[in-house]
Design a protein around this nucleic acid. Sequence first.
DNA 1: ATCGGAGGGTGTAATTTTACACCTTTGACA
DNA 2: TGTCAAAGGTGTAAAATTACACCCTCCGAT
Lengths: 221, 221
Amino acid sequence: MEQIHDSGKNCLSILSTKEYNELYSNSNSLNFEAGELIVKKGSPVNNIYFLKSGIVELSLDQAPKNQILSLLFNGEFIGINCVFSTAQYRFSARALTKCSIELLDKETFAKLLKENGTFSMAFIQYISWVNEGFLNWQMKLKEKNSAGALAFLICEFQKNFDSNSFEIPLTRQEIARIIGFSKESVLKNLADFRKEGLIDSNGKSITIIDASRLEEIAKYG
Amino acid sequence: MEQIHDSGKNCLSILSTKEYNELYSNSNSLNFEAGELIVKKGSPVNNIYFLKSGIVELSLDQAPKNQILSLLFNGEFIGINCVFSTAQYRFSARALTKCSIELLDKETFAKLLKENGTFSMAFIQYISWVNEGFLNWQMKLKEKNSAGALAFLICEFQKNFDSNSFEIPLTRQEIARIIGFSKESVLKNLADFRKEGLIDSNGKSITIIDASRLEEIAKYG
DNA sequence: ATCGGAGGGTGTAATTTTACACCTTTGACA
DNA sequence: TGTCAAAGGTGTAAAATTACACCCTCCGAT
């Protein structure tokens, strides 16, 4: 229990070559285009979706309107809480960018969990870590106003890129659905950030000019 | 994987008598009074807290001010996500009522998880179920206005009692911290519910008069 | 090439929620 | 029994957010 497994990839690396091959011999690769529905709410859980590359949004409804629960990046399992707790997915998953996904067999995965105690401990660490992260993300967003939440999201995206200039592959509406405010609030706050010289933005591309002040706002001050 | 383990108690019942005795021989019973701090944010995870009876609140800060993450009822583990994902608790737990808690040894618990594949599968099902429930709870609250959120909380409490008359062991301030609105909003909505004949309330005791209309509001319509 | 829809953008009004000010009630305890 | 703090309660003003109305631009399909 010394090692903390902080990504799905990390967790799969526990498996022996034999176990790994067994898991992957029962799996399929799938590719999705931006905007495509990956998992529809209510569909039965027959496989485990492992996100090899791309960004996925989870939302409570399959319509691309509702509140976005969370964003998943590469190395994560999609909707892992539903796999072992309910017979069906309780939300929908949609590709935000091109995505490459490995469809693992649920029964093989479960068999390996039962047989390999080290793997199951790593998996327990992983889902604990994922859920702890989700909880923290939600709570941080909840205590902020619209400007703080937007700044927070921009800072979080920045962490996934090395540069201060990057593209956020989301429409203003999608950003709004993530942070839980209206599209107009997002637009107005973006305009304010631009006017105050915190960022420069042009469509989906964004450049952070004053990172420390942006982080101040993200922390809510 | 047929059986779904939807409470910590249920999950512990998987253990053989021998394993159960091993776990409990390394454990202690603790009792807490209403208001007492059970787990302080930042403290190291040395034990697993199993809530035998009572109601516990989880919050991001030890001060009894901040947003309440969730309420735990009997049969649940306290802060189970932190046990296997971080070395320390990321939030505080406080007794809302008198609580009886079993302090299980973390290493023994981990050993049993590694050795007993059926137990670890049940535990995985349990934490998935807990987190799925938390996520749903948070999302349902998020999409509601203050009246809807309050009605929702009242309806949720009602489910834990068999009668339409019961006591909510929370101050108005605590209710506010759970649903994420101000104390005044809670008071005003309660007054409205009373005026409209949906409920009767006197201090902490509450009687639901028009359950269907209250549920309507809870669903936000 | 042009039509139409989706997305970006902004101002103003309406709505919701909070903040503040202040009062009453309750219950522990000296 | 008196006191004091915490909790319940309410009205009004201020602040934040949303809703609506409307405009422009870009881009894909006919």
